[in-house]
Design a protein around this nucleic acid. Structure first.
Lengths: 336, 336
DNA sequence: CTGAAAGCGCTTACAG
DNA sequence: CTGAAAGCGCTTACAG
């Protein structure tokens, strides 16, 4: 029914071996031979069968992306961050390699361990060639991933243990926290709060550490507001506490939280950018779509996805594991 | 190296045929036999090889999602709509079927036709079992998809031609446009504009038609503002024209455009919700994260993705092609 | 239920 | 470069 190597070989009057090698990208053939193969393939409408190839090579051409989903099932909806990462990843897979991405998400907190086991199984069943994983996971799962003998690229994971086959990509979160807080200090704000939903995470701890460093330099006191699951809702709810404690500025460890806080402040008729200073972290697009526009720390998420994918593919193709740290920058807009 | 059916058969003291059938979900075996197979498989850590299975069954367990990308490469970043659809789709694939999704996106307008050919080829190479496609495509591409003999589910496509193997899912866009406009009329606004970036698309034409119907009933005149690529930027830019023409309300055919318009209006100190009425369309989350919160038409995008995926899988498994129309509802918030 | 056998479409040594 | 052959791991008739 479908056109196979055999058909192409017959059409071109050439051996199956040669056809296979030409499609496999082997270069040892003359231009004539290559063109004869390609012409015959085109004429017959031949397309290689990836399943058959995969059976031999034990490569699937698939990269797995592991997403945590803290809030309900709406992972992508709730976290613009993931979308941007994915855009970056897709841009690389599509243009450079023609790998495909498949998503493994961990849908609930309830059966967390069980779901992770399913993810682990599914990675094996699909025989993915490499893994991208965003965020933090428990050590048992990481150990399991490590044992699979495929390259794993961890994005925004500060795990300090040493696993084989792991690479890491992080932004300079500490520096970002420092820059954000310094901006508020420069603007003359005196009582600067730190707002974070998941402050317990190692990532947020880094941003927090930057805040501490900047405050210490200025000789100011810390005011920490933490808690909540959905970042936007957490921000909305923290507003009241901030007002009560007469804090006059806030560094939010993620933009969505800053957006929630801004929503509250605007409703209270607080003149944000003058009487109250606000800086976020991430530089997602909503920050410049709201009014007033959000001052924030840019971490170039798209590039992070791009770099993660590019690096992972190079490791799949033989490069060494690595650790990458991406720079951050202050984006000064209207809220501070 | 890896554990195969053969190993499991030996371990369980049972034929390869039986092992294969048990994993294939055949029910004709006694509980004893099934359990013996499963126990042996578990003991050895056996996991079926999908590539080998696929070679025989000619099913890949893969569903392809085709995304248009009008703006640069950042498809997912720029259109929250796609993310929500994908969340809906993933929720079905993950829980019900354990299919995987792979994305085909059409990255640029420049080499549009050429890119579509690549997508077409890639669909064949990956041997996907079904296709989800969002938005409008040229007829040549649709004809090509139709010829592949796999089920295709078109989301938000109003193509009137009859293709074999195609199913359709749409929201009641005309009714949405009507409801949105009616809401503005009810609030007492007299000069109601319609704002749309891609007004030429059949989808936007439907929403436009609803606007027309409501205006006609009220005996009001049309005021159409169209053009632009990026919806948010288009909204920002339309603000000036709206003010110049002293329009006192606007129905924006998508939320992102309404958000852009709102950004402009707030900057001009227009009291939106009082002196100016604004209604969007989509009900994406940014609408309730901005302040004032956006009145809009909800089209339950998550459910749309869910239904599209569920229906597609049922067709993959033998059901008939179908056409679905989902209801919409007005979400009354602060801007109108 | 069993078990031997064929075959899906490809890649990979291997001898020439 | 060629060409015959083996084999990846599975499913699917088929005769019992």
């Amino acid at each position: 029914m479908s056109v196979t190597v055999k058909d192409v070989a017959k059409e071109a009057g050439i051996s199956r071996t040669t056809v296979s090698n030409v499609f496999g990208g082997k270069t040892k053939y003359s231009d004539e031979t290559r063109e004869a193969v390609l012409a015959a393939a085109k004429k017959l409408g031949y397309k290689p069968n990836l399943a058959a190839r995969s059976l031999i090579t034990n490569k699937s051409g698939l990269v797995g992306l592991i997403l945590p989903s803290y809030v309900d099932t709406n992972t992508l909806t709730n976290s613009p961050f993931y979308n941007i990462i994915m855009d970056g990843v897709y841009s690389v897979l599509r243009d450079e390699a023609y790998y495909d991405l498949i998503i493994f998400s961990v849908p609930s907190k309830e059966n967390y361990k069980e779901k992770l086991l399913q993810v682990s199984d599914w990675i094996d069943v699909r025989n993915v060639d490499g893994i991208l994983a965003i965020g933090e996971y428990d050590q048992a799962f990481l150990r399991d991933l490590s044992s699979k003998n495929i390259p794993v690229m961890l994005i925004d994971n500060y795990s300090s243990e040493n696993y084989s086959n792991f690479s890491y990509i992080n932004s300079d979160d500490e520096a970002g926290g420092y820059l954000a807080t310094q901006q508020l200090i420069k603007q003359g704000y005196k009582k600067i709060g730190l707002c974070s939903a998941a402050l317990h995470s190692l990532l947020m701890q880094k941003r927090y550490a930057g805040y501490k460093r900047a405050l210490a330099e200025a000789g100011y006191l810390e005011h920490v507001f933490a808690g909540g699951i959905d970042a936007f809702e957490a921000g909305k709810q923290m507003g009241e506490a901030l007002m009560r404690e007469k804090v006059d500025a806030a560094f939010c460890t993620e933009d969505m939280l800053a957006v929630g806080l801004l929503h509250y402040l605007l409703k209270q008729r607080v003149r944000v950018g003058q009487e109250f200073g606000l800086v976020g972290f991430d530089n997602i697009s909503i920050g410049r779509q709201i009014y007033p526009e959000l001052t924030t720390i840019d971490q170039n998420i798209f590039k992070k996805g791009e770099t993660a994918a590019k690096t992972l593919l190079s490791i799949v193709n033989g490069a060494k594991d690595t650790r990458l740290l991406l720079p951050v920058a202050l984006i000064s807009r209207e809220t501070a």
